[in-house]
Amino acid sequence: MSEYINLLIGIAMGLNLLALGSSRLPTLIMAVALQGMALGLMPLLMETEADWRLVLVALATVAGKGLLIPTLLRKAMRAAHIDREVEPFIGFVPSLLLGAGGTIAAVALARSLPLLPEHSGSLLVPGSLASVFTGFVLLIGRAKAISQVCGYLILENGIYLFGLLLIHYTPLMVEAGILLDVTVGVFIIGIIVDRIQRAFDSLDTRKLTALRE
């Protein structure tokens, strides 16, 4: 079982790098969507007995992160006529190398953390740290609001992964609540994106430094 979990986390880590290296917004959104789906399946694999609430939350996560949010983002992109090119502050090759270095560092760091023995062989913690780091790199190194949303989602995925460590102790309703928060957050960002577009004729966050009445 833990092999499948590690495989899924490995895929998620690969998608982190894809997100860092992709120069097109649709690819970036797709990477985020796939990562969300992969991580949404995780609780099903981690629990030995299938609980209906668990299945429900997992399905909701997959649907929310894998289908709903990406669709919203794509819609926002189309509605606001955003150019599909990602504009990087940190170039693609440097951010890719940064992400890879962060992933390796996360694996190394996780070894020195005092983890429960059942989590020591798993990639849960490194995957979580790597995703958080990737999210930060995207948030810092990309100009467009949409790509920053993607960075935020990847960051959230990292936190979600960390939360899975505590799956036995956290009520699932809390998870569901977080999911709801994220979805609402993206809704709001979608609306803001539209407003920014109308106010500034551009979605370039660099221009937000010039405040308007």
Partner: peptide
């Protein structure tokens, strides 16, 4: 200008295989 990106990806793939 995209060629180095793809080659870096290849390098990272091999690097992760090494690890």
């Amino acid at each position: 200008r995209r060629v180095p990106l793809l080659l870096t990806t290849a390098f990272l793939l091999c690097l992760f295989a090494l690890l």
